[in-house]
Design a protein around this nucleic acid. Structure first.
Length: 696
DNA sequence: TTTAGGG
DNA sequence: CCCTAAA
């Protein structure tokens, strides 16, 4: 039949290559669908595994029944999902759905999570959509969209995110979202990936399997508030907290809470916005004195630091007149609150972390840790003094340095600086592990990844007043950090060592050296946040995302995105410290994974094939066969620069399709039936030929 | 890079 | 025409 047609139309010149091309065939991705399904199944299994582990940990290590019940509630609520819920998308998301084939599958798996038993979340309902996410090579997992509603149907948040990470974050967000959040809407533009609040990552480090660090290029998110007028524009945490009514009965610790927030007040909203480490500015006598404490951690200190680092808990340095051992202070006395009820993060960390923390720092060489911190002023360095003499020495040193700055008045008492780094944002960790892997191997893999991650040349950067302090040789005094100064804007940043140290003095402050990035980032953050302009998405490089639906109407957190796009953003790989309180609501943060927003991707102009082009294509394929598109291109479209071999392949595909459908169904410029018959003939011939090659 | 295939 | 897995 086919041959007959071939003969009918006069072509009999099929040219089978002398060297069979069977070795190159089959090519391409044959079982895509299957692969995706496998991935989905695998991811779900991992999620189940994680959830199970969480439950297990909660059951096994809960110190008291109340805590355990709380955990059970949370996890149960997290896991109990009802399928079939449908979710509407806003216009933006719908557009993306049209553009993104993967997004089109977003409705494939829907979940509704009910939080009826979670304290503070009664009546809360959250729906998720999970779809696979396979746009990017090596990208594993899903994408979810979720919208949260409270009992009164007020919207809490909308996320578009990579679902695996989403679920990670979800655990935290469930724990830490509080009912006050319903007064604000967090709108995150559709994007491909999310990152997590530090505690989320910390939490999952010990929970999950193999992790692969991804580097990111940050993209902005927009945060809006439905009722932002309820809150000061400045979004001061203190104000916000005080404005909010605790949903639960007042607890005895409420006075502590108040003092805690009062204390927080001394940290500027600026530094919080910029998502740098929060500095605990308490003095030994609880006066609000804020001085950075230069210190070189001793091994046990390192250990402790790492513990705290790994659990996103704050550590503090005791007044170090006795040599400056770190000590943890009043964690138990100072409850972290989420709108009147205790945050569970700490409980969780305590319960789950001992083992994990052990694993964590056991596997990190101390030398690495040393290295990571060595950019901070050290105990033995001239930067740090523990008594008045040393202070004077520091004075003298600073007075001999160029660009020094006048010493603040009182130096005798508070030369030591006490600060605590409450949290860090670390690069996203991606899971990629077979579902058959054991928890143990999973943990090992996580540890390895974390170790590799943290050991990979990170160092601590210092941010002062929004500027990165690059000169490691300057003293604190020269830099402008004194004990009784206003240290609202002091922050820290973890950054890779290979980040360019493009430092240049700031005109307005000669004592501050600055890499260009962090403050740029922050400025963008600020302006972006205050004046969201979706159209700026393509042009705004890096940035930040929200961590809270409660208090951060204008609070954003710098986050990290994929640097694999080669949009150089070296410092965007940095680990930004995040104010603890901003993490307390919605740790799920979307990140732009694609280089550009889909709607800004320029599509090639459509250039329909002319009949003569089709003729040339058919002729070439008749001669060379299907599957040699490069040769076809060279042979017949060498000079047609706008026709790639992929185009030719696509055109052939559509030609075959066109030839098979009835003429009434065809669109566009009509292709002569004769040509279409040749297409069918050649296609049949070469298909048959290929099949024969396969079987041999 | 090229091919195959889903979209 | 886009996207991307797989080779």
């Amino acid at each position: 039949m086919v041959l007959q047609r071939r003969l009918n139309y006069g072509f009999n010149g099929y040219e089978v290559p002398a060297v069979p091309r069977a070795s190159r065939s089959p090519r391409g991705r044959v079982p895509i669908r299957k692969k995706r399904d496998d991935n989905r199944i695998r991811a779900i299994e991992i999620l189940a595994c994680v959830a199970g582990k969480l439950l297990q940990d909660a059951e096994n290590s809960s110190p008291d029944a109340a805590c355990r019940e709380e955990w059970d509630n949370i996890f149960e609520s997290t896991i109990k999902c009802k399928q079939g819920h449908h979710q509407r998308y806003n216009e933006d998301e719908a557009k993306v759905s049209k553009r993104d084939p993967c997004e089109q599958e977003i409705c494939k798996e829907n979940f509704t999570c009910e939080f009826s038993r979670v304290p503070g979340l009664q009546g809360h309902r959250q729906s998720y959509k999970v779809n696979e996410f396979s746009r990017a090579r090596g990208n594993f997992g899903f994408k979810t969209n979720s919208t949260s509603y409270f009992a009164d149907h007020s919207r809490v948040g909308r996320y578009s995110s990579n679902s695996l990470e989403f679920f990670r974050g979800h655990v935290d967000s469930v724990i830490e979202t509080n009912s006050e959040a319903k007064s604000s809407t967090v709108l995150i533009r559709p994007s491909d990936k999310i990152s997590f609040a530090p505690q989320t990552l910390d939490f999952f480090r010990g929970q999950i399997d193999s992790v692969t660090e991804r580097k990111y290029e940050a993209k902005p998110s927009i945060i809006r508030s439905n009722k932002s007028e309820n809150f000061p524009v400045k979004g001061s945490l203190d104000t916000l907290e005080l404005n909010l009514k605790p949903p639960s009965p007042v607890r005895p610790e409420s006075d502590l809470k108040a003092s805690l927030f009062r204390r927080r007040k001394t940290c500027s909203s600026y530094s919080r916005r910029c998502a740098n480490a929060e500095v605990d500015i308490r003095d030994a006598d609880e006066n609000s004195v804020c001085c950075p404490q230069p210190s070189r951690p001793t091994p046990n200190i390192v250990e402790q630091s790492i513990r705290n680092f790994s659990t996103s808990r704050q550590w503090r340095r005791a007044p170090n007149l006795n040599g400056g051992a770190f000590r943890r202070t009043d964690w138990n006395r100072k409850p972290a609150y989420c709108n009147g009820r205790p945050c569970h993060t700490r409980q969780r960390s305590q319960r789950i972390s001992p083992y994990k923390r052990r694993m964590f720092f056991d596997r990190i060489p101390l030398s690495t840790l040393d290295g990571r911190f060595h950019h901070k002023p050290t105990f033995n360095s001239p930067y740090k003094r523990s008594n008045g003499d040393n202070c004077n020495a520091a004075n003298g040193a600073s007075s001999s340095a160029a660009g020094q700055q006048a010493l603040p008045k009182s130096t005798s008492r508070d030369c030591n600086v006490k600060l605590s780094i409450k949290s860090f944002t670390v690069p996203e960790l991606l899971i990629d592990i077979p579902s058959t892997a054991t928890i143990g191997s999973l943990k090992r893999a996580v540890m390895e990844a974390v170790t590799a991650n943290l050991g990979d040349g990170l160092h601590v950067g210092v941010i002062l007043q929004g500027k990165s302090v690059r000169d490691d040789n300057k003293t604190l005094l020269q830099t402008g950090i004194y004990h009784d100064d206003d240290h609202r804007s002091l922050g820290f940043i973890l950054e890779p060592n290979h980040a360019p140290i493009s430092s240049h003095p700031q005109a307005e402050d000669p004592h501050l050296l600055s890499g260009s990035r962090p403050q740029d980032l922050m400025r963008r953050t600020t302006s972006l946040t205050l004046q969201p302009k979706p159209s700026d998405f393509s042009s705004l490089p890096p940035v930040m995302n929200l961590c809270s639906s409660v208090d951060n109407n204008f609070d954003v957190v710098c986050s990290l995105t994929d640097i694999s796009t080669n949009n150089a953003m070296p410092n965007s790989q940095a680990l930004f410290a995040v104010p603890a309180i901003t993490m307390e609501a919605l740790p799920v943060v979307p990140l732009q994974q694609k280089p550009r927003h889909p709607e800004f991707v320029q599509r090639r102009t459509r250039r329909p094939f002319s009949v003569s082009e089709v003729e040339a294509l058919v002729q070439a394929v008749e001669k060379l066969g299907t599957g040699r598109w490069r040769d076809v291109k060279i042979r017949a479209f060498e000079s047609a620069k706008h026709r790639t071999y992929v185009d030719l392949k696509d055109k052939w595909k559509t030609l075959v399709h066109t030839a098979r459908i009835s003429p009434q169904q065809r669109r566009g410029e009509p292709v002569p039936q004769q040509l279409l018959d040749r297409v069918l003939a050649a296609h049949a011939f070469w298909s048959h030929h290929q099949a024969k090659q396969q079987s041999n």
